[in-house]
């Protein structure tokens, strides 16, 4: 069961992304839709798609996974597309509701998309499979604090990508803790 986190600036430039593979068993959330659709990466085009999406990122993902098989719809570009597609939904909901944590704003095949919008309109988008509201909320709040600390740095601008290894380690640690 994997999670994908994207941090997007107010103008939707990607600032940070993380793939987290948790060892916890996926909570059963079968989607009738996903069962009927062909699995993306096992299709005949999988090799081409992988190559297009950048083989290095795939290799990185599988090493991190430690032998976890990349299943359907887990190609990098598909994940990115799902995350980007959910932005419309997020923007729509943000205008209507005043919560920062947007629970399950969008769904695509087996993926559920939850988001967190900071006061300054930075968006954290998380693709996940199971249901884990409290964990995800706690995860987002921790990421918010880390992001805030990054932001307080005068050398950080709204569009600079976050390359700090400490940030990365901390986000991974809280992902491990809550997801």
């Amino acid at each position: 069961m994997s999670h994908h986190l994207f941090i997007l600036s107010p103008s939707d430039t990607p600032l940070y992304s993380l793939t987290h593979l948790s060892s916890r068993p996926a909570a059963p959330a079968p989607s009738p839709l996903s069962a009927n659709l062909p699995s993306w990466s096992t299709s005949a085009f999988a090799g081409t798609l992988t190559a297009l999406s950048g083989a290095s990122s795939m290799a990185q993902m599988s090493t991190q996974g430690g032998g976890v098989r990349m299943g359907g719809g887990q190609d990098r570009h598909v994940i990115q597309m799902i995350a980007n597609a959910s932005l419309d939904m997020i923007e729509d909901v943000v205008r209507r509701e005043n919560g920062m944590y947007l629970k399950a704003v969008d769904k695509f095949n087996e993926w559920t998309i939850s988001a967190f919008v900071t006061p300054g309109n930075t968006k954290f988008v998380l693709l996940h499979e199971g249901k884990n509201d409290d964990g995800i909320r706690a995860f987002f709040v921790e990421v918010w604090e880390l992001y805030l600390k990054t932001m307080m740095n005068p050398f950080h601008t709204a569009h600079s990508t976050i390359r700090s290894s400490v940030f990365d380690t901390r986000v991974r640690a809280s992902a491990k803790k809550y997801l």
Binding site: R96, E97, W144, M151, P154
Partner: peptide, 26 residues
């Protein structure tokens, strides 16, 4: 403007950061 973006984020975090359901003004 550079100060403002930080003030906003930090100020709201200090009031809402520990809340169960943090809110933003719409």
């Amino acid at each position: 403007y550079r100060i403002g973006t930080r003030v906003l984020e930090l100020m709201i975090w200090r009031t809402e950061g520990s809340s169960k359901a943090p809110k933003r003004e719409i």
